[in-house]
Simulated assay, not measured.
Amino acid sequence: MSRVSLASATRVGAFVVIGGIAFVVDALVFNGLAFWVTGRGPLYDQPLVAKTIAVVVASVVTYIGNRYWTFGKRRMRLRFSRYVVFAVLNLVAIGLQLGCLAFSRHVLGLEGPVPDNISGTLIGQTLATIFRYLTYDRLVFRDEAEGEPDIETKESAA
Score class of each variant (00 low, 15 high):
2 S>P: 12
3 R>F: 07
4 V>I: 12
6 L>E: 15
11 R>N: 05
12 V>W: 10
13 G>W: 11
13 G>E: 11
17 V>G: 02
18 I>E: 03
19 G>E: 13
19 G>A: 08
20 G>W: 14
22 A>I: 03
25 V>M: 07
27 A>M: 14
27 A>Q: 13
30 F>E: 07
31 N>S: 01
32 G>V: 07
33 L>E: 12
33 L>R: 05
34 A>L: 07
34 A>P: 05
35 F>L: 06
36 W>C: 00
37 V>R: 14
37 V>L: 15
41 G>A: 04
41 G>N: 09
42 P>G: 00
43 L>D: 10
43 L>V: 09
44 Y>P: 05
47 P>Y: 15
48 L>Q: 15
50 A>K: 05
51 K>L: 15
51 K>H: 11
58 A>M: 06
60 V>K: 00
61 V>N: 15
64 I>H: 04
64 I>N: 03
68 Y>Q: 04
68 Y>T: 05
69 W>H: 02
69 W>P: 01
70 T>G: 07
70 T>C: 05
76 M>Y: 09
78 L>P: 08
79 R>G: 00
80 F>R: 10
80 F>S: 08
80 F>V: 13
81 S>Y: 12
82 R>I: 02
86 F>D: 03
86 F>P: 02
90 N>A: 04
92 V>I: 13
96 L>G: 01
96 L>D: 05
98 L>K: 04
98 L>W: 10
98 L>I: 09
99 G>E: 12
99 G>R: 08
100 C>P: 05
101 L>Q: 08
102 A>D: 13
103 F>I: 06
107 V>T: 11
110 L>M: 08
112 G>I: 03
112 G>Y: 14
117 N>T: 09
118 I>R: 11
119 S>Y: 11
119 S>W: 15
120 G>Y: 09
121 T>F: 02
123 I>Q: 08
123 I>L: 14
124 G>S: 06
124 G>F: 08
125 Q>Y: 14
128 A>S: 11
132 R>A: 03
133 Y>I: 05
133 Y>D: 10
136 Y>W: 09
140 V>Q: 02
140 V>Y: 04
141 F>Y: 13
141 F>W: 15
142 R>Y: 08
144 E>R: 08
146 E>R: 12
151 I>D: 11
152 E>P: 04
153 T>P: 00
154 K>R: 14
157 A>C: 06
158 A>F: 15
